Simulated scan of single mutants.
Amino acid sequence: MSGPNTNYDPVEVSALDPAQVDANVQAALDAIAAAGDLDQLKQVRTAHAGDKSPLALANREIGALPPTAKAEAGKRVGQARGRVGQALKERQAELEAERDERILIDEAVDVTMVPGRRPLGRRHPIEQMGRRIADIMVGMGWEVAEGPEVEAEWFSFDALNFDEDHPARQMADTFYIDPPEHGLVLRPHTSPVQARAMLERGAPLYVACLGRVFRTDELDATHMPAFHQVEGLAVDEGLTMAHLKGTLDRLASELFGDGIVTRLRPSYFPFTEPSAEMDLRCFVCRGTDPDCRACSGTGWIEWGGCGMVNHNVLRACNIDPERYTGFAFGMGVDRALMFRTGASDMREMIEGDVRFDAQFGMEI
Protein backbone atom coordinates (compact mmCIF):
# COMPACT_ATOMS: atom_id res chain seq x y z
CA MET A 1 0.00 0.00 0.00
CA SER A 2 1.33 3.43 -0.92
CA GLY A 3 1.49 6.28 1.66
CA PRO A 4 -0.37 9.58 1.61
CA ASN A 5 0.33 12.05 -1.14
CA THR A 6 2.32 14.55 0.87
CA ASN A 7 3.27 16.51 -2.23
CA TYR A 8 -0.41 17.39 -3.08
CA ASP A 9 -0.67 21.17 -3.53
CA PRO A 10 -4.13 22.59 -2.53
CA VAL A 11 -3.53 25.55 -4.75
CA GLU A 12 -4.07 23.28 -7.69
CA VAL A 13 -7.79 22.92 -6.57
CA SER A 14 -9.46 25.95 -8.18
CA ALA A 15 -12.00 26.44 -5.39
CA LEU A 16 -9.20 26.70 -2.87
CA ASP A 17 -7.03 29.01 -4.92
CA PRO A 18 -6.25 32.06 -2.66
CA ALA A 19 -7.07 34.48 -5.46
CA GLN A 20 -10.41 32.75 -6.08
CA VAL A 21 -11.23 32.72 -2.39
CA ASP A 22 -10.46 36.45 -2.12
CA ALA A 23 -12.59 37.12 -5.21
CA ASN A 24 -15.52 35.23 -3.67
CA VAL A 25 -15.15 37.18 -0.46
CA GLN A 26 -15.08 40.49 -2.30
CA ALA A 27 -18.14 39.55 -4.35
CA ALA A 28 -19.98 38.69 -1.13
CA LEU A 29 -18.96 41.95 0.56
CA ASP A 30 -20.07 43.99 -2.47
CA ALA A 31 -23.42 42.23 -2.57
CA ILE A 32 -23.90 42.71 1.17
CA ALA A 33 -23.16 46.43 0.92
CA ALA A 34 -25.59 46.79 -2.02
CA ALA A 35 -28.48 45.11 -0.20
CA GLY A 36 -31.10 47.84 0.32
CA ASP A 37 -33.44 46.03 2.71
CA LEU A 38 -33.74 42.89 4.75
CA ASP A 39 -35.35 40.89 1.96
CA GLN A 40 -32.45 41.64 -0.39
CA LEU A 41 -29.97 40.80 2.36
CA LYS A 42 -31.68 37.43 2.83
CA GLN A 43 -31.08 36.65 -0.85
CA VAL A 44 -27.44 37.72 -0.53
CA ARG A 45 -27.01 35.46 2.51
CA THR A 46 -28.30 32.48 0.55
CA ALA A 47 -26.09 33.22 -2.46
CA HIS A 48 -22.80 33.91 -0.62
CA ALA A 49 -23.11 32.09 2.71
CA GLY A 50 -25.54 29.30 1.99
CA ASP A 51 -24.83 25.62 1.45
CA LYS A 52 -24.30 26.08 -2.29
CA SER A 53 -22.28 29.32 -2.09
CA PRO A 54 -18.69 29.36 -3.52
CA LEU A 55 -17.14 29.49 -0.07
CA ALA A 56 -19.23 26.55 1.14
CA LEU A 57 -18.15 24.52 -1.88
CA ALA A 58 -14.50 25.44 -1.21
CA ASN A 59 -14.88 24.29 2.37
CA ARG A 60 -16.01 20.86 1.15
CA GLU A 61 -12.86 20.47 -0.95
CA ILE A 62 -10.70 20.64 2.18
CA GLY A 63 -11.68 17.15 3.17
CA ALA A 64 -9.93 15.69 0.14
CA LEU A 65 -6.59 17.29 1.04
CA PRO A 66 -3.72 15.48 2.74
CA PRO A 67 -3.30 16.21 6.46
CA THR A 68 -0.36 18.51 5.86
CA ALA A 69 -2.43 20.77 3.58
CA LYS A 70 -5.72 20.77 5.47
CA ALA A 71 -4.66 23.19 8.20
CA GLU A 72 -3.52 25.97 5.87
CA ALA A 73 -6.50 25.63 3.52
CA GLY A 74 -8.97 25.38 6.39
CA LYS A 75 -7.56 28.51 8.00
CA ARG A 76 -7.79 30.48 4.75
CA VAL A 77 -11.37 29.42 3.93
CA GLY A 78 -12.51 29.77 7.54
CA GLN A 79 -11.22 33.34 7.73
CA ALA A 80 -12.95 34.10 4.44
CA ARG A 81 -16.28 32.73 5.66
CA GLY A 82 -15.83 34.58 8.94
CA ARG A 83 -15.39 37.91 7.11
CA VAL A 84 -18.53 37.28 5.10
CA GLY A 85 -20.51 36.25 8.20
CA GLN A 86 -19.38 39.34 10.13
CA ALA A 87 -20.31 41.60 7.22
CA LEU A 88 -23.73 39.98 7.06
CA LYS A 89 -24.24 40.48 10.79
CA GLU A 90 -23.25 44.16 10.65
CA ARG A 91 -25.40 44.84 7.59
CA GLN A 92 -28.32 43.03 9.24
CA ALA A 93 -28.05 45.32 12.26
CA GLU A 94 -27.87 48.43 10.03
CA LEU A 95 -30.93 47.46 7.99
CA GLU A 96 -32.93 46.55 11.09
CA ALA A 97 -32.11 49.93 12.63
CA GLU A 98 -33.17 51.70 9.43
CA ARG A 99 -36.41 49.67 9.36
CA ASP A 100 -37.24 50.52 12.98
CA GLU A 101 -36.54 54.20 12.41
CA ARG A 102 -38.71 54.21 9.30
CA ILE A 103 -41.54 52.51 11.16
CA LEU A 104 -41.40 55.14 13.88
CA ILE A 105 -41.77 57.83 11.22
CA ASP A 106 -44.32 56.09 9.01
CA GLU A 107 -46.51 54.88 11.87
CA ALA A 108 -46.18 57.91 14.09
CA VAL A 109 -49.46 59.04 15.67
CA ASP A 110 -50.15 62.68 16.47
CA VAL A 111 -52.34 62.36 19.55
CA THR A 112 -53.20 66.07 19.35
CA MET A 113 -54.62 65.84 15.83
CA VAL A 114 -58.40 65.75 15.41
CA PRO A 115 -59.23 62.34 13.88
CA GLY A 116 -60.73 62.34 10.41
CA ARG A 117 -63.79 60.24 11.12
CA ARG A 118 -66.50 59.44 8.64
CA PRO A 119 -69.58 61.47 9.63
CA LEU A 120 -72.33 59.39 11.17
CA GLY A 121 -75.82 59.34 9.75
CA ARG A 122 -78.67 60.83 11.69
CA ARG A 123 -82.43 60.97 11.67
CA HIS A 124 -83.99 63.90 9.87
CA PRO A 125 -85.08 66.62 12.32
CA ILE A 126 -88.70 66.29 11.16
CA GLU A 127 -88.61 62.58 12.04
CA GLN A 128 -87.03 63.42 15.38
CA MET A 129 -89.84 65.88 16.12
CA GLY A 130 -92.48 63.32 15.13
CA ARG A 131 -90.92 60.71 17.41
CA ARG A 132 -90.75 63.22 20.25
CA ILE A 133 -94.45 64.03 19.90
CA ALA A 134 -95.29 60.33 19.73
CA ASP A 135 -93.29 59.68 22.91
CA ILE A 136 -95.16 62.46 24.71
CA MET A 137 -98.54 61.07 23.66
CA VAL A 138 -97.58 57.52 24.64
CA GLY A 139 -96.42 58.88 27.99
CA MET A 140 -99.92 60.30 28.45
CA GLY A 141 -101.42 56.86 27.85
CA TRP A 142 -102.34 57.28 24.19
CA GLU A 143 -101.60 54.90 21.31
CA VAL A 144 -99.98 55.75 17.98
CA ALA A 145 -102.01 54.84 14.88
CA GLU A 146 -100.96 54.82 11.23
CA GLY A 147 -102.75 54.65 7.91
CA PRO A 148 -102.12 54.67 4.13
CA GLU A 149 -100.99 57.80 2.32
CA VAL A 150 -103.12 56.90 -0.72
CA GLU A 151 -106.56 57.02 0.83
CA ALA A 152 -110.17 56.51 -0.17
CA GLU A 153 -112.15 59.72 -0.64
CA TRP A 154 -114.76 58.37 1.77
CA PHE A 155 -112.28 58.20 4.67
CA SER A 156 -110.77 61.56 3.75
CA PHE A 157 -114.01 63.51 3.43
CA ASP A 158 -117.36 61.69 3.70
CA ALA A 159 -116.65 60.03 7.05
CA LEU A 160 -115.47 63.40 8.37
CA ASN A 161 -118.68 65.29 7.54
CA PHE A 162 -117.37 67.16 4.49
CA ASP A 163 -120.20 68.14 2.13
CA GLU A 164 -119.90 67.05 -1.49
CA ASP A 165 -119.38 70.66 -2.57
CA HIS A 166 -116.83 71.51 0.14
CA PRO A 167 -113.88 73.47 -1.36
CA ALA A 168 -111.34 71.06 0.12
CA ARG A 169 -112.70 68.30 -2.16
CA GLN A 170 -111.82 70.22 -5.31
CA MET A 171 -108.74 69.36 -7.34
CA ALA A 172 -107.45 72.84 -6.61
CA ASP A 173 -106.89 71.74 -3.02
CA THR A 174 -106.51 67.95 -3.09
CA PHE A 175 -104.37 65.59 -5.17
CA TYR A 176 -106.61 63.00 -6.86
CA ILE A 177 -105.21 59.71 -8.19
CA ASP A 178 -106.05 59.10 -11.86
CA PRO A 179 -108.71 58.38 -12.80
CA PRO A 180 -110.46 60.77 -10.35
CA GLU A 181 -113.75 58.87 -10.52
CA HIS A 182 -112.15 55.97 -8.63
CA GLY A 183 -112.23 58.11 -5.49
CA LEU A 184 -108.59 57.80 -4.42
CA VAL A 185 -106.61 60.77 -3.14
CA LEU A 186 -103.29 61.56 -1.55
CA ARG A 187 -104.59 62.14 1.96
CA PRO A 188 -104.86 65.89 2.65
CA HIS A 189 -104.74 65.32 6.44
CA THR A 190 -104.20 62.46 8.88
CA SER A 191 -107.87 62.53 9.94
CA PRO A 192 -108.66 59.40 7.84
CA VAL A 193 -106.51 57.49 10.32
CA GLN A 194 -108.90 58.64 13.05
CA ALA A 195 -111.88 57.36 11.07
CA ARG A 196 -110.20 54.01 10.48
CA ALA A 197 -109.28 53.73 14.17
CA MET A 198 -112.87 54.37 15.27
CA LEU A 199 -114.20 51.77 12.83
CA GLU A 200 -111.60 49.16 13.75
CA ARG A 201 -111.34 49.69 17.53
CA GLY A 202 -114.55 51.37 18.62
CA ALA A 203 -114.73 53.35 21.88
CA PRO A 204 -113.19 54.20 24.26
CA LEU A 205 -110.27 55.33 22.11
CA TYR A 206 -107.16 57.49 22.56
CA VAL A 207 -104.94 57.61 19.47
CA ALA A 208 -102.31 59.95 18.03
CA CYS A 209 -102.00 59.88 14.24
CA LEU A 210 -98.71 60.98 12.69
CA GLY A 211 -97.73 60.96 9.05
CA ARG A 212 -97.14 62.75 5.78
CA VAL A 213 -100.00 64.58 4.06
CA PHE A 214 -100.40 66.30 0.70
CA ARG A 215 -102.05 69.49 -0.49
CA THR A 216 -101.81 71.56 -3.63
CA ASP A 217 -99.91 74.38 -1.92
CA GLU A 218 -97.07 76.26 -3.58
CA LEU A 219 -93.69 75.67 -2.00
CA ASP A 220 -92.57 78.74 -0.05
CA ALA A 221 -91.10 79.63 3.31
CA THR A 222 -94.22 78.58 5.26
CA HIS A 223 -96.01 76.08 2.97
CA MET A 224 -95.15 72.75 1.34
CA PRO A 225 -97.17 70.46 -0.96
CA ALA A 226 -96.03 67.50 1.16
CA PHE A 227 -95.69 68.03 4.90
CA HIS A 228 -96.25 66.21 8.20
CA GLN A 229 -99.15 66.32 10.63
CA VAL A 230 -99.98 64.95 14.04
CA GLU A 231 -103.58 64.59 15.13
CA GLY A 232 -105.03 63.40 18.39
CA LEU A 233 -108.40 61.76 18.89
CA ALA A 234 -110.00 60.84 22.19
CA VAL A 235 -113.43 59.19 22.37
CA ASP A 236 -114.84 58.19 25.74
CA GLU A 237 -117.73 58.81 28.07
CA GLY A 238 -117.95 62.31 29.55
CA LEU A 239 -115.15 64.03 27.61
CA THR A 240 -115.44 67.83 27.38
CA MET A 241 -113.54 70.83 26.05
CA ALA A 242 -111.81 71.00 29.43
CA HIS A 243 -110.13 67.65 28.72
CA LEU A 244 -109.08 68.96 25.30
CA LYS A 245 -107.58 72.12 26.81
CA GLY A 246 -105.68 70.14 29.45
CA THR A 247 -104.26 67.78 26.84
CA LEU A 248 -103.08 70.66 24.65
CA ASP A 249 -101.49 72.47 27.61
CA ARG A 250 -99.59 69.32 28.56
CA LEU A 251 -98.41 68.72 24.99
CA ALA A 252 -97.32 72.34 24.59
CA SER A 253 -95.37 72.39 27.85
CA GLU A 254 -93.61 69.11 26.99
CA LEU A 255 -92.61 70.42 23.55
CA PHE A 256 -91.78 74.03 24.29
CA GLY A 257 -91.03 74.21 28.00
CA ASP A 258 -92.78 75.18 31.19
CA GLY A 259 -94.91 78.29 31.07
CA ILE A 260 -96.22 77.58 27.56
CA VAL A 261 -100.01 77.35 27.54
CA THR A 262 -102.67 77.36 24.86
CA ARG A 263 -105.74 79.41 24.19
CA LEU A 264 -108.76 78.55 22.07
CA ARG A 265 -110.45 80.89 19.58
CA PRO A 266 -113.83 80.01 18.02
CA SER A 267 -113.54 78.60 14.51
CA TYR A 268 -115.21 76.10 12.16
CA PHE A 269 -114.23 72.64 10.93
CA PRO A 270 -116.67 70.11 9.40
CA PHE A 271 -115.53 67.28 11.66
CA THR A 272 -115.73 69.10 15.02
CA GLU A 273 -118.49 71.05 16.78
CA PRO A 274 -117.73 73.28 18.56
CA SER A 275 -114.43 74.05 16.83
CA ALA A 276 -111.52 76.26 17.79
CA GLU A 277 -108.15 77.50 16.62
CA MET A 278 -105.48 76.89 19.21
CA ASP A 279 -102.70 79.39 19.85
CA LEU A 280 -99.50 79.00 21.84
CA ARG A 281 -98.25 81.47 24.38
CA CYS A 282 -95.17 82.89 22.63
CA PHE A 283 -92.21 80.66 23.48
CA VAL A 284 -89.76 83.54 22.86
CA CYS A 285 -91.11 86.44 24.91
CA ARG A 286 -93.84 84.66 26.94
CA GLY A 287 -96.11 87.54 25.94
CA THR A 288 -94.02 90.27 27.59
CA ASP A 289 -92.32 91.91 24.58
CA PRO A 290 -94.46 94.17 22.37
CA ASP A 291 -91.67 94.14 19.76
CA CYS A 292 -91.21 90.34 19.64
CA ARG A 293 -90.73 89.16 16.03
CA ALA A 294 -91.98 85.63 16.76
CA CYS A 295 -95.49 86.68 17.84
CA SER A 296 -95.54 90.22 16.39
CA GLY A 297 -96.08 91.54 19.90
CA THR A 298 -99.40 89.73 20.42
CA GLY A 299 -97.96 87.16 22.82
CA TRP A 300 -99.60 84.29 20.91
CA ILE A 301 -98.61 82.07 17.97
CA GLU A 302 -101.14 80.10 15.90
CA TRP A 303 -100.54 76.33 16.26
CA GLY A 304 -103.48 74.32 14.84
CA GLY A 305 -107.16 73.44 15.00
CA CYS A 306 -109.22 71.44 17.48
CA GLY A 307 -112.70 70.83 18.81
CA MET A 308 -115.25 68.28 19.98
CA VAL A 309 -115.87 65.47 17.47
CA ASN A 310 -118.97 66.13 15.41
CA HIS A 311 -121.82 63.70 16.13
CA ASN A 312 -122.11 62.97 12.39
CA VAL A 313 -118.50 61.72 12.41
CA LEU A 314 -119.18 59.45 15.36
CA ARG A 315 -122.26 58.01 13.66
CA ALA A 316 -120.37 57.45 10.38
CA CYS A 317 -117.80 55.44 12.34
CA ASN A 318 -120.37 53.34 14.22
CA ILE A 319 -120.00 55.06 17.61
CA ASP A 320 -123.08 56.08 19.61
CA PRO A 321 -122.94 59.90 20.13
CA GLU A 322 -125.55 59.62 22.88
CA ARG A 323 -123.13 57.63 24.99
CA TYR A 324 -119.70 58.83 23.87
CA THR A 325 -118.15 62.21 23.22
CA GLY A 326 -114.77 62.94 21.79
CA PHE A 327 -112.27 65.67 21.09
CA ALA A 328 -109.68 66.02 18.33
CA PHE A 329 -106.79 68.31 17.54
CA GLY A 330 -104.16 68.59 14.84
CA MET A 331 -101.04 70.57 14.06
CA GLY A 332 -98.09 70.48 11.67
CA VAL A 333 -94.97 68.63 12.78
CA ASP A 334 -92.89 70.82 10.47
CA ARG A 335 -94.31 73.97 12.04
CA ALA A 336 -93.61 72.60 15.52
CA LEU A 337 -90.02 72.04 14.43
CA MET A 338 -89.83 75.66 13.30
CA PHE A 339 -91.16 76.79 16.67
CA ARG A 340 -88.63 74.69 18.62
CA THR A 341 -85.57 75.53 16.54
CA GLY A 342 -86.22 79.00 15.22
CA ALA A 343 -85.97 77.84 11.59
CA SER A 344 -87.46 80.50 9.35
CA ASP A 345 -87.86 78.68 6.02
CA MET A 346 -89.58 75.32 5.55
CA ARG A 347 -87.72 74.77 2.30
CA GLU A 348 -84.53 74.18 4.26
CA MET A 349 -86.14 71.07 5.76
CA ILE A 350 -86.57 69.26 2.43
CA GLU A 351 -83.55 70.35 0.38
CA GLY A 352 -81.46 67.43 1.64
CA ASP A 353 -78.56 69.61 2.77
CA VAL A 354 -76.75 67.67 5.49
CA ARG A 355 -75.53 70.94 6.98
CA PHE A 356 -79.13 71.70 7.99
CA ASP A 357 -79.64 68.25 9.54
CA ALA A 358 -76.25 68.17 11.30
CA GLN A 359 -76.98 71.16 13.52
CA PHE A 360 -79.82 69.34 15.27
CA GLY A 361 -77.96 66.19 16.37
CA MET A 362 -79.84 63.36 18.05
CA GLU A 363 -82.49 63.65 20.75
CA ILE A 364 -83.05 61.08 23.47
Rank of each mutant, 00 (worst) to 15 (best):
D163S: 15
D39K: 15
L95V: 02
H182A: 15
E96G: 08
A242P: 00
A195C: 13
M171S: 04
C292M: 10
H189F: 05
D37I: 03
A97N: 08
M241R: 04
A197R: 04
M346P: 05
S191Q: 00
L160Q: 07
P66M: 04
N7A: 15
Y324A: 03
D37G: 06
D17N: 15
E107C: 14
L244S: 01
H243F: 05
D334F: 06
D51I: 12
L264P: 05
D334P: 05
T262L: 04
M171G: 05
H311V: 08
A108I: 07
A35H: 02
A276K: 02
S344A: 10
M241S: 11
A336P: 00
D345Q: 06
D320L: 10
K52N: 14
E72M: 10
G307Y: 01
K89G: 11
W300E: 01
Q86C: 14
E164R: 13
R212Q: 13
G330A: 13
W154C: 06
M137D: 03
F155C: 09
F175S: 07
D51C: 08
N310H: 13
L29G: 06
E12Q: 15
R131F: 08
L120R: 09
T272C: 00
I177G: 14
L205W: 00
D258Y: 12
E90Q: 11
H189A: 10
Y324I: 05
Q359L: 08
G352A: 05
H243M: 03
E143V: 03
A108F: 15
I301C: 07
H189E: 11
D17L: 09
L29A: 10
R81I: 01
V138I: 15
